[in-house]
Design a protein around this nucleic acid. Structure first.
Length: 661
DNA sequence: TATATAATGAAACCCATG
DNA sequence: CATGGGTTTCATTATATA
């Protein structure tokens, strides 16, 4: 099957990292951690069960009231004394978790919590599946500020409650087919749901166990199985997938085995190895699961995405928060509290990734809304990319001179040979491979058979090849792929940036095809010039040929210390060479592998020059890009899963900065 | 050995149309 | 609102060639 595994213990923190230390110093120690993880596992409704493990290590900031990021650019990040900042360590279930279960709490219960002043805190725990009474009790016992001990109390209540009802525990472990003999009423599933849904969404607890059982017994067989699995703590999506794979006749035991195997294959994460549902759910949660099942069936009928409620859609036109030439500029935005720096961060990847990828990326990067920009608004070639960053977006300015924005202006020598039936004014995305000489030769021969005006089908053939391979006219009937130096120019790099030093022509195309468009990135980074007039320290992950470095340099922002992590030696040589040729005054430190970059190394660097102001990175797109026929496996693909290292390192930097202050 | 070439589709988007 | 045609896409791999 197509499950892609990721290297084991990618998420297990290095032994000496500050996060790990924080865990060890915590009063509750690892037992508490595993309990939290277990509970998160039990309650999640998203299949993204990595999230809990990861996000629970966030150094989240807890702040009462509105989490407004407005005017954050006026905040002096060096003196954060006015902010109430608290590292609440492993018990901080930050945004990701709360959002995952948010669909459950949206129906009422929270609104009646008038007696408690901190409604956000209540919402938070409601979202984790605790009852309002329990939350009120826990807050009363522990006070509103100590989230950790509140959660501890809640977990204790939960454990006690499940011990009190051993019968339910049994009923949730139906493992033999015989026990699944319900009355099959067949077709009524589609019509009754309106009333059921209305009842289910009701917030009171008036449903008795027998009423739930009654509804259960009226469900079709496979939905009963789904519900059984859901009540055992699996997600409805997981349950449905398991039944799809194992067949409708499969026993619950077979289905749980399948789900466990799928989970293991998907994560190989030591944290979850012993995670199997053990605790039964109380009636209230069972009711919720029934409600979830109804919602899921609705979505499935309507063909709506079942994986995620809010699917990020690409904007049209793809101009992000505005471009220099469009006149449309969004003046400001509101960032989620957890996203606000320091450090500033800037993440990039292909916009046209498989569905759900950008939702995941955004969720990990503190719920920041991605900015999707097509670089065809900056230069003569398209480049549809998504950028997640916490930079201010007002008072941006472009690099000067503005680059040519049509093929005609960028490659004036081609104009003479351009036939009128080739209507292109922009090139398509610059990729890592180019059309071959043999291909252009075939096209020339095909054209030479006709006069000035080839027939429609020939024009169609030629144009298809032109668009596919980004060919340009360099002579009569003569097409050619772009030269490496033309690609450099289009992407905003200095001429010969990738030339020489033993790099082959093929590898130049490859490195360039994987790079930033400098003008686009520089436009976004331009706001840093006023903030760091004396220069900045940058951590550059997946540096490639140094697009971010070149952008900052061309903006006139001095580079003080740059730690650049890049796996390809050829690319490191290119950046090193550029660094020397441009007479940089700062220090360039090169590392090869992001996976080797741990908290200790980061602390060393940050201790020696006082922290990073900016963390930039475009993680590998191999498994996301549409051109990949072989291994377009999504964010869990072999290379693209390095995104999680970007997040890991960024979060480490965040933690270390907070610790230093 | 190093480099160039050809073969390898599908997912996701746009947009006009009924 | 569905649908069907049109378009785009930071690529990988085996094989041929120099």
């Amino acid at each position: 099957m197509g499950l892609v595994t990721t290297p084991p213990s990618r998420f297990s923190l290095p032994p000496s990292s500050p996060n790990r230390r924080k865990l060890q110093e915590s009063k509750l120690g690892t037992c508490f951690v595993s309990q939290v993880l277990h509970f998160g596992y039990l309650l999640r409704i998203s299949s993204d069960f990595r999230l809990f493990g990861i996000e629970s290590f966030h150094c989240a900031r807890l702040k009462d009231g509105n989490a407004s990021g407005e005017d954050y650019e006026n905040i002096d990040w060096d003196t954060e004394d006015e902010l109430e900042i608290e590292n609440i360590g492993p018990s901080s279930c930050s945004n990701g978790v709360a959002r995952n279960v948010g669909t459950i709490v949206s129906n009422g219960e929270a609104s009646s919590s008038a007696g408690i002043s901190n409604s956000k805190l209540v919402q938070h725990f409601l979202g984790m599946g605790f009852s309002e009474e329990m939350i009120a009790k826990a807050i009363k016992e522990n006070g509103e500020t100590n989230t950790e001990s509140i959660l501890e109390s809640l977990l204790t209540y939960g454990a006690l409650a499940s011990e009190e009802s051993p019968d339910e525990l049994n009923s949730c472990h139906l493992s033999s087919p015989q026990q699944q003999q319900f009355v099959d009423n067949g077709q009524l599933s589609s019509d009754y749901d309106e009333s059921v849904l209305a009842d289910l969404s009701d917030s009171d607890d008036s449903w008795s166990g027998s009423e739930i059982a009654e509804i259960n017994s009226s469900l079709p067989e496979h939905e009963k199985a789904i519900l059984s699995l859901a009540n055992m703590g699996y997600t409805i999506e997981e349950a449905s997938a398991a039944i799809d794979r194992c067949g409708p006749e499969a026993s619950i035991a077979e289905l749980t085995d399948f789900i466990c195997a799928a989970q293991m294959a998907k994560t190989e994460d030591v944290f979850f190895e012993e995670e199997k549902p053990k605790i039964s759910l109380n009636g209230n949660l069972k009711k919720r699961k029934l409600y979830e099942l109804e919602m899921w069936k609705r979505k499935k009928r309507k063909g709506v995405q079942t994986e995620d409620d809010e699917v990020i859609r690409l904007p049209n036109p793809m101009i992000g928060f505005g471009t220099p030439t469009d006149g449309i500029v969004k003046p400001h935005r509101i960032l989620p509290e957890a996203a606000i720096g320091p450090p500033f961060f800037y993440y990039e990847n292909v916009a046209l990734a498989p569905k759900g990828v950008w939702d995941t990326i955004s969720r990990f990067l503190y719920d920041v809304e991605p900015e999707f920009v097509d670089s065809k608004y900056f230069c003569a070639a398209a480049r549809k990319r998504g950028y997640v960053h916490n930079l201010p977006i007002n008072n941006r300015f472009p690099l000067l001179p503005l680059p040519p924005r049509t093929i005609n202006d960028a490659l004036p020598l081609t104009k003479k040979w351009w036939p009128e039936w080739d209507k292109r004014t922009k090139l398509n995305c610059l990729q890592t491979v180019i059309g071959s000489a043999k291909l252009t030769d075939r096209i020339r021969k095909a054209l030479e058979k006709w006069g000035a005006d080839p027939p429609q089908h020939v024009q169609k053939y030629v144009m298809d090849e032109c668009r596919k391979w980004n060919l340009v006219w360099v002579g009569k009937n003569k097409l050619a792929p772009l030269e490496p130096d033309e690609v450099e120019m289009l992407l905003g790099f200095p001429r010969n940036h990738t030339r020489g030093g033993g790099i082959s022509r093929t590898d130049r195309y490859k490195s360039l095809g994987n790079s930033f468009q400098v003008d686009t990135v520089a436009y976004h980074l331009s706001v840093l010039k006023d903030i760091f007039p004396n220069g900045l320290n940058m951590l550059s992950l997946f540096s490639g040929i140094g697009g971010a470095e070149v952008a900052l340099h061309r903006l006139g922002i001095p580079l003080k210390n740059v730690v650049s992590v890049e796996i390809s030696e050829a690319n490191r040589d290119i950046v090193r060479s550029w660094w020397e040729q441009t007479n940089q005054k700062g220090n360039l430190i090169h590392l090869a592998d992001v996976q080797q970059l741990n908290g200790d190394r980061l602390e060393q660097f940050m201790g020696s020059f006082g922290g990073f102001d900016l963390v930039v990175g475009g993680s590998p797109c191999n498994n996301l890009a549409g051109s990949n026929r072989v291994s377009r496996d999504g964010l869990e693909g072999e290379q693209s899963s390095l995104f999680y290292d970007y997040f890991r390192i960024l979060d480490l930097v965040k933690c270390i900065i907070n610790k230093q202050q």
